[in-house]
Structure formats: structure tokens, C-alpha cells
Write a protein that binds this DNA or RNA. Structure first.
Lengths: 184, 184
DNA sequence: GTCTATAGGGAGATAGAC
DNA sequence: GTCTATCTCCCTATAGAC
């Protein structure tokens, strides 16, 4: 595995678990098996390293969304997209998770650099929800999406993908609860 | 306003918006109108200052929960508790918000010190949901609570309490969506 | 492409005057 | 109760050898 990638992996891991400011380049370098100064051969600064992690995270989510969209006539279309989002969160390393746990620890410059990329992913979801739930007023669509995102993303704080509940089951539970509620 | 409280307020504000590690005692002191060294007359360390903020945050949430519980026969009992939680989040300063945005930037020692206090609040909710939704299996109760918490807490990242939607309306929307879902 | 060495700055925390 | 002064440590980043 090339050093540049080992550094990126280690950085994503550390940023997720400690936040941006609490993570030092020495720690990242140590995890990657090199010295801190060598990081600068691959990335020009700590900030650019974080930006690279976050950009990668969105790319994973967008790819997951798009492959879920490839079977448009599936009656469980929403379920498949929820599963894809959760899959990105839990099965593709800490890159996407960084958006949930570390984004708000990012310095302003990093935050603004990544916002447009995040927006593009959110737009995919707004359109999907508009298509699947046409009875919801357009103005309320982002709000409904934010609630769904809140429920999906918060799983990163408590769900254990190696526990008794599988990711498939979690996706079903979230989708059902989102569509039908918990009252019976 | 006593200096000890000005320091605590400033700390809560800074921790919420920047995270723990990115916040310096010099910034907090500046906001409170004193010098950094003077903080040590009121708090023994930066960590203890953060712990104080988080303890206060839980206390506000517990008080809000309890005053919502004072009318137990209200048919809109869940709504009132959701409203109370959101009220704690948006109307009682940044102390409660610190739990949502800054908790995971806390050093391990702070985290473990606050966990028992958080647990007590979560237990209140588990019991409430068990009472209101008896048809849900006991084992699934925490999961249902976590999804609800995810939806409620994520509002801190996007809801503007001074915008066109009021907190009352937001509470109604979240409660309705939680109970009945978005499908029609 | 990785290293050692180090510059330059800012952090948390302490000492002691007022 | 707040200040100034300062200690000590560790951070990001750079310079230059190999």
C-alpha cells in the first residue's frame, strides 16, 4: 500500500475518533509508519489532508447513491438508498464517518471548501424524496430529508456493525420507522 | 454577573462552535473580560471547565424533562417532552448543545466523567417510551430512542429558532413524523 | 521519498505581586 | 480576584542531507 494512501487512511481514522484539532501530524505519521515531516511530501498541509479525507467521504456516498439508483423500478427504492447510505458510513472506512463526527471540528477554511460537495449529495436526496413522496410540499422536503439524515447519521455514534443486528436490518428498521412511524 | 459564570458561559459558547481542542483558555478569558491565568482561580483546569459545562447541560435537560412530566395525563405527552428537549437545546444557552456538537471532541477523561450523567437522562426517555409505546419490544426500545434522539439532536445543526418555523412547530413535526411516518 | 534537525509560535499551567 | 511574567511542552511547517 502506497504511503500516500496509508497517510490518508490514518488521518481519516484519527480525525473521526479525536477531531481535527486534537489530532497531530505525528500521530498520523506514526500510524502510517513514517515521520511527520514526510507527510509534506504527499500533502501540503494538515488542512489539505483533512479536505482530502472529506472529499473522499462524499465521493463514496455519491457512488453508493448512484449504484442504488440503478434499479429505479424497485418498490423498495428508498430502502435501498438508506442501505447504501449506511453502507457508506460503516463499510467504507472512516472517510464518510468523518463528515458526521469531525466536520464541525474543521477550521472554517476546510468547512467552506467542502460545503459545495456536500450540497451536491444533499440535492440527490432532495430529488429522490420529492419523487418518492410527492404529497410532501416542496418547501418541507429539505426538512424531511434533514430528519432522515439525522436519524441515519446518528447511528455512527451507537450502532455496532459486528453486533447482533445487521446493517440490512438497521436499514429496514430506519426506513420503516421513517415511512410508517412507531405508533401502531 | 459573576466572573465564574461569565467564564462558564464563554466556555460553553466556544466549545460548541469550535470544539474542545480548538478552543484556547485565552479566547475564553477574553470573552469573559479577564486574563487566562485568572480562570484558574475559578476552575482547576481546562478539562474541569468542560466537565462543568457538560454537567450543566444535562441538568438543564433533566429539569426540562421533569417539568414536562408534571402533566402525566396529557394526550400530547410525547409532544410535550419533545418540545422540552428542543427547548433545552435552543433556549437554554449552549450548555446542552455542547453535548451534541462537542462531546466527541472531549478528551477521554472528560468523556468518561460525564457518561453516567448522560445515562440517567437516557433512562428517563427509555421509560417514557416504554410507557407510551407498549407494543414495542423492550429490546428495541433503546434503538427507537436513539433514532428519535438522532432526529431531535441533529436539528442543532440546521434549525434556526429565529426563522419562520417556530420551535413549537418543529416539535409537532418531529413528533408526528416519529409516530406516524411520512408515507400517507 | 524519507530522514534529522530545528525554526517559530502558541498552548496549558504556575508563581507571586497587588 | 485579577494581574504580569514565565515555564515547559508540543504543535505545524521548513531546510537540507541521504
Amino acid at each position: 500500500m502506497p504511503a500516500r494512501l496509508r497517510v490518508l487512511d490514518a488521518a481519516a481514522q484519527r480525525f473521526v475518533s479525536q477531531g481535527y484539532a486534537a489530532t497531530t501530524l505525528r500521530e498520523i505519521a506514526g500510524d502510517a509508519g513514517i515521520k511527520a515531516a514526510s507527510i509534506y511530501h504527499h500533502y501540503e498541509s494538515k488542512e489539505s489532508l483533512f479536505t482530502a479525507v472529506l472529499d473522499d467521504g462524499i465521493a463514496v456516498m455519491v457512488r453508493a447513491f448512484e449504484s442504488a439508483a440503478n434499479a429505479p423500478d424497485d418498490p423498495d427504492r428508498l430502502l435501498r438508498h438508506v442501505r447504501a447510505h449506511l453502507g457508506a458510513l460503516f463499510e467504507h472506512g472512516p472517510y464518510t464517518a468523518a463528515h458526521v463526527t469531525a466536520f464541525f471540528t474543521a477550521p472554517p477554511s476546510v468547512r467552506t471548501a467542502v460545503v459545495p460537495v456536500r450540497d451536491s449529495y444533499e440535492l440527490l436526496w432532495n430529488n429522490l424524496l420529492g419523487e418518492l413522496l410527492p404529497h410532501i410540499a416542496k418547501a418541507q422536503r429539505p426538512l424531511v430529508r434533514l430528519v432522515l439524515f439525522g436519524a441515519m447519521n446518528s447511528t455512527i455514534e451507537w450502532f455496532d456493525p459486528h453486533g447482533t443486528t445487521t446493517l440490512d436490518q438497521l436499514a429496514e428498521l430506519l426506513t420503516d420507522q421513517f415511512l410508517n412511524g412507531v405508533a401502531r
